[in-house]
Every structure is written in structure tokens, then in C-alpha cells.
Design a protein around this nucleic acid. Sequence first.
DNA 1: CTTGCATGTGCAT
DNA 2: TGCACCTGCAAGT
Length: 266
Amino acid sequence: MPEGHVIHRLARDLNHEFSGHCVRVSSPQGRFAESAALLDGHMFNHAEAHGKQLFLHFDSPHIVFIHLGLIGKFRLAPLAEPKGIVRLRITDGLVAADLHGPQWCRLITEHEMLAAVDKLGADPLRNDADPEWLWSKVSRSQRTVASLLMDQRLFAGVGNIYRAEPLFRLGISPFTSGRELSREQFDELWADLADLMHQGVTDGRIDTVRPEHTPEAMGRDPRKDDHGGEVYVYRRAGLPCYVCGTEIKHQVMEGRNLFWCPGCQR
DNA sequence: CTTGCATGTGCAT
DNA sequence: TGCACCTGCAAGT
């Protein structure tokens, strides 16, 4: 269930556990066995996230390139027998990181990594992101902002929740085109993405509801649809907006369900 | 038990 | 535009 915050959190956790240590690398499932053998016993140097992509550096020219996709999981837990189908396992003897169902897991070179990163846009979770470059692209586009937000060549790491929630929080219609977006709106959007995604890395869940709209503040029940946090519009189609009471709408855009409040986002 | 859906992407049509 | 990938969870039977 990974947007960029999950990948950055993973990189942080992997570094904390393995960085500077020799590790065992294996593929219990077998599909990554030959590659794992090339790294087995090597020192784990560091992990790094760019958008939704995860790169693992060892004391080796081979870099592990992982993308979890929609259903992939990469979990750290005390060393035990693998549960289910494990494509890749990294362990220091105390903790095992097990990779399940990834979209991609393969070895690449430094050169290939640079090429992969070069295709990505600005990642709100990275210090080296360039919002000026992003503004130059967005402000010239006729595509809707909700479409632009899902484009990894522009906004790296943003997924379906992080496109819907900041637009709601800023009162921006998802159908606003890039060139219609004001510089002020773009700056607010970039800042809100960075704030929410950094919070997501810290918390391990996505919470976007402001203090004045929390269940406690408004005397309503916490939502039942548990995808990890409290949100305004994501997966709330047909339900009343917490702020204005208008029914939340949804429609498919860029192949994914877009959610918004027609009352708050004009 | 079965079915459907999900925070994603690439490829075939 | 649709589907394949492939896992986990919740809801329905």
C-alpha cells in the first residue's frame, strides 16, 4: 500500500537496522536467487528512496532496485521462518526484511540507477527536489492538476491519497488546469504535499484532517474504512463533507478513483 | 468459503 | 482503454 512516504520510511528503517553491517541476502521464493547470491555476505551500505522507487546499495557494484507496486510489501520483523512467498530476504541475524509481491525487484548498475532517477520529477520528501523546475512544467500544462499530481515524471512519490487530500485542504478543484493554477496555489500545494508526506513518514499512516475537523473536535465517529488514517475525501464518495456537508464525489481519472468535494473545491 | 477491491505501473490492443 | 501482475483484507455467501 505504498505512496512515497512508505518507501522513504522503509529506507530509513533499513538504514537504521542494516547500514554498515554484513548481511545475508536470499530469495526463499527462488525467483531472485541468482541475484541474491551475488550480494550474500556483503556489507549493506545504505538504502535510498526516490519517489516510489527504493534503491539498496551494498559493498558491490550491484544495486537492488525495488518498486512495490500496488500490492507489494517490504517488512522488517525479528528473524523467523519466512511467512508466505518471500522474493527477497535481507537479515543481519536479528531482524529480517522480507519482500512480498513487488512490482519490480532486480539488480541494476549505478548508470541504470541514474537513468531511472532522471526520469522522475520532484519528490516532496527529498531535499534536492526542485520546485522551480516543477512550476515551469505545471504552469505550462493544459492537463488537470489532479492528472499532473499522478504523473511521476512531475510529482515523484505522490499517489492517489496525496493527490486528493491536499487539493481538498487548499480548496482547489481537481479539474483546474496547470496553467490556470496560480503561483500562490502551486506554492501552497507543494508545501502541503511536503508537510503531509513528512508527517506520513513519521507516523506510518496518512492523516490529513486538521485539528478543528477531527472526530473528537466535531463529535462524530471515527471513520470505519481503515486504510491507515483520517482523511477528508479519499474513499468517502457519497458521504457528506466534514466541512460543508456536500456529498463527496468520485470519478476515474488517470485510471484511479479521484475523490473531491464540489462544495469546498471550486 | 468466495469475491471484490486497494496507497501502482507497463504493456497490449 | 483494459488488463496483468500478485498480496492482504473486508465483506458477502
